Simulated scan of single mutants.
Amino acid sequence: MSSEIKLYMFQTGVLKCKENNIKMNASLDPYEIPVPWYLITHPKGNVIIDGGNAVECATNPIEHWGGITEVYWPVMTEAEGCVNVIKSLGIDPNSIKYVLQSHLHLDHTGATGRFPNAMHIVQRKEYEYAFTADWFAAGGYIRKDFDRPGLKWNFLEIEGNEIYDVFDDGVIKMIPTPGHSPGHCSFLITLPQDGSILLTVDAAYTTDHFEDKALPGFLASAVDSVRSVAKLREIASVHDALVVTGHDPDAWKKFKKGPEEYYK
């Protein structure tokens, strides 16, 4: 457990897809997107956000994900799996206190069930929808990732302008941003030196989406998606936050990447 607050940005490789999977009504050209996840060290316990793809995608994506691999093809190494990254940092996996889930889509559940002492925190409506998703969304939820015996869950029920402050100290705030999925959350991270960093996750796939120039290629509600982006833009403005969108291949290159670099 670290006594210093730091934010590390990692990725579990990339997903190969088409541009219109990421930007609605865009081309059918091949498109490759990063799959980010985040580690926050904190004196009260280490925290993982999402965890990216499950490590099984490094060796047999079709067996683990099934037919959705015809749309999104994961390319990653076992070393990029979140548990292996944590170990490479010299951090004991038993020290992970929380796994925070923005939502439960397949490229965000790489940490579920991987850390023995972790409490998993997610919106209740997201968890329930993951088991009962509509036909167009069902392929995005890999039940074997999150339906595991013995997991500890904290189900949030936050709406509108409510937030969930993980440590009640302003460092990690979960913000409801439905649209991409019914129970999606984004994160406002406030660090001692680098200030505020807004992790939109899939509430805004790309900078174009964040700037109202494109809708995401996948969503549960277009109306909620647009309203959540508007809320995030206001939060970013008020907090003068660095904005990190969910899967933007160009913007992602500009951020500090772990393990060598981090925000503090």
Rank of each mutant, 00 (worst) to 15 (best):
167 F>C: 11
144 K>G: 04
63 E>K: 15
108 H>L: 15
172 I>G: 00
249 P>F: 03
44 K>Q: 15
153 W>M: 01
99 V>Y: 00
40 I>R: 05
123 Q>C: 05
220 A>S: 11
74 P>C: 02
171 V>H: 05
29 D>N: 14
141 Y>N: 05
110 G>D: 04
86 I>R: 01
171 V>G: 08
218 F>Q: 12
181 S>G: 07
196 S>K: 13
211 E>H: 15
78 E>G: 00
188 L>Q: 08
119 M>N: 12
13 G>I: 10
68 I>G: 01
114 R>G: 00
205 Y>R: 08
133 A>K: 12
139 G>H: 04
48 I>Q: 08
77 T>I: 05
49 I>W: 03
77 T>C: 10
141 Y>S: 06
255 F>C: 03
197 I>D: 00
26 A>S: 14
34 P>C: 09
154 N>M: 13
231 K>C: 10
44 K>A: 11
113 G>I: 00
13 G>R: 09
39 L>H: 09
136 F>G: 08
22 I>V: 15
239 H>F: 10
53 N>R: 12
79 A>T: 07
235 I>D: 00
96 I>R: 06
154 N>F: 09
129 Y>V: 02
35 V>K: 01
165 D>G: 14
103 H>G: 08
232 L>S: 02
202 D>H: 15
175 I>Q: 01
100 L>K: 07
146 F>I: 04
128 E>F: 06
45 G>Y: 02
112 T>E: 09
